[in-house]
Structure formats: C-alpha cells, structure tokens
C-alpha cells in the first residue's frame, strides 16, 4: 500500500534491464520485439474497461441527469426540474441532517477502527504461533455480513443485554438503551461498523509494521529509546502509507453506511442515525426516484469533496516523513 493510487504506467522507460547486455545485439533486438508484443496487448484490458464503463461509469453519468429530474413512479417521462429535488429534501429536513449523520458516522467509525487496529497490530506484530492464532481470532468478525454484525450488537447493546448486565455488576440497576437513546445511537452503530472491519485493517497495519527496518528500531533501543518513543518516532511515521490507505478506505467506505443501521435502529431514534443511504432507500420506497438520485449524488459528492483533499494532504505528510 505504498500509495492510495499507484503511479500510472511509468512513462520513463525501464526496459533493457538484464537481457541486452548478456545476449548481444541480435538478441537484444529480438527481446525488444518480444517486449513490443507483450505491451501491445491492449485488448486484454477491454473486458474490464467495458464492465466498469457500463456498470460503474455510465450510472454515474445517468445520475447527473436523474438527480435534477422529476422522475417518480407517477411520471415516468424524465424531465429536467433543476434543483427542486434538493429543495424538497431540504424542506423536509432530509438533506442536511442526514449529511451530518453520515459524516459523524464515518468519522466515529474511522477513528475507532484505526485506533483499535493500530493497537492490535502493534500487539500482534511478531509472527509467532500464538500471534497467528490471535490474528485469526480477531479476524472472525470480518467474515460476518454487516447485517449479521448489526443483529449481534443489537442484542449485546439491548437495555437488558450482556453489556448492561456487566455494567450492572458495578452500577446496580444500570439501564441504558444504547441504540434507543439519541445521545448514543449514532456512536453505537458506527462502533459496530468499525468492529466488523477491524480485523482486516489490523492485518494491513501488521504488514506496514513489519516493513519497518529492524536496524532503525535496534539503533533506537541502543540509544536508550523507550518502547513508546520508538513507536511514535520510528514505527508510526514509517507506517504512513498504510495509515493513508486505511484512513481513506475506512472513511470513504463509511459514507455508504446502510447495512448496520438497517439491522439495528433503522434510522432512529428520531433521525439520529438516518444516514444518506437510509433516506435514499426511503425515497426509493416512496417512488421518488429523482429525489433518491439526488441523495446518491450527495454521497458521491461527499466522497469527492472529502477524499481527494484527504489523500492529497496525507500523501504530502508521507513525503515529509
């Protein structure tokens, strides 16, 4: 994970390594003919380009039209109606509040996921047999569908569920509906999302930690650095590429929040967990396809507005480190 987007096919020529020197002139000419054959396989990329073009890019373009159209179940001829879908949504409180909820969800999920993953990765960094067992164990939630994870935590966090029973040992009579109270519902659903994915992010961090050169760490120990110092001064800066990847992927992924919320709160209580995709589903159910498209476009815009500057800023930080 050196970069979030690797450099495109290098323009500078890196051919003529090896080969030409040992095989002589004629051999070199033959080899470069061979390379030309290899490089001209453009049509190998064609199926992928067609699939992504038709089923990913084309719908994005359609969306630019639908978001500004009056398409509903009742009017199937799609005509331009400007910003009126957005205005209607704003009027019903279905745009700005869901944007806030979505951003809140994504930030809480991203921070939780990366903090816990970093700690777990640091604890399980050595490839011992026992750590192999723990890595598998902590990977288990990743295998669950987000929906199943949602149901499990709906049980764990219920007011008479195991978490409250445990707290009740220390605080007799403790009773709190984590998913049912406005103040904790959003944090709770975002936490479940993080819980589901932490095993995977952890492995990415372990790969990053193990790529840190041993010499640097040993030198630090000789110079009398504590474990805490050598983590923050050496390991963490060198983790920058893994950090960039994980932060961006978790944040952007959480903008599409839906499954966990559908399994737990369904958007409530009130509108405290009503993320953009939940509203999109509601509008779809009502037959307001134009308004639904407007919400989809909002999610896309959110990703572009947040992800591109974030990648740029994190990459610059990487370059400095």
């Amino acid at each position: 994970m050196k970069t979030v987007l690797p450099d495109a096919p290098a323009a500078s020529d890196r051919a003529d390594v090896g080969g030409s020197r040992s095989t002589g002139e004629a051999g070199a000419a033959r080899l470069s003919r061979g390379r030309r054959i290899v490089r001209s396989g453009v049509w190998f990329a064609l199926p992928a380009i067609v699939f992504v073009g038709v089923f990913f890019v084309l719908p994005q373009l359609y969306n630019l039209r639908f978001a500004f159209s009056n398409w509903t179940t009742y009017s199937s001829n799609i005509t331009w109606n400007g910003w009126s879908n957005f205005e209607t949504l704003i009027g019903q409180g279905l745009l700005f509040t869901p944007i806030g909820v979505t951003i809140g969800y994504a930030v809480i999920a991203m921070v939780t996921q990366n903090v816990v993953s970093l700690a777990l990765a640091y604890a399980m960094r050595d490839s011992t047999r026992l750590n192999g067992f723990f890595r598998s164990l902590y990977f288990l939630p990743v295998l669950l569908s987000p929906l199943a994870a949602g149901y499990i935590w709906r049980g764990l966090l219920a007011s008479d569920g195991p978490l409250n029973d445990f707290i009740g040992i220390f605080v007799p009579g403790f009773d709190w509906s984590w998913l049912g109270e406005t103040s904790t519902a959003l944090a709770a659903v975002a936490f479940v999302d993080a819980w589901k994915w932490i095993g995977l992010t952890t492995l990415v961090y372990i790969a990053g930690i193990n790529a840190v050169p041993r010499d640097a760490l040993e030198a630090a120990v000789i110079d009398g650095a504590t474990a805490w110092q050598s983590f923050w001064r050496i390991t963490f800066p060198m983790l920058a590429p893994a950090f960039t990847f994980n932060v961006v992927v978790t944040l952007v992924g959480a903008f599409s929040a839906y499954d966990v919320i559908a399994a737990t709160t369904g958007g409530g209580p009130g509108d405290s967990t009503r993320a953009l995709n939940i509203v999109l589903r509601m509008q779809w159910g009502l037959g307001n396809f134009g308004a639904g498209s407007a919400l989809g476009l909002t999610v896309t815009a959110l990703v572009i507005v947040v992800a591109i500057p974030l990648v740029w800023w994190l990459r610059r930080r990487e370059a400095k480190a």
Partner: peptide
C-alpha cells in the same frame, strides 16, 4: 473509492 449509484 467512489460509491456506485443505485437508482441509475
């Protein structure tokens, strides 16, 4: 990175 769009 980009979320796919469902209704279109």
């Amino acid at each position: 990175l980009m979320p796919p769009t469902l209704i279109p």
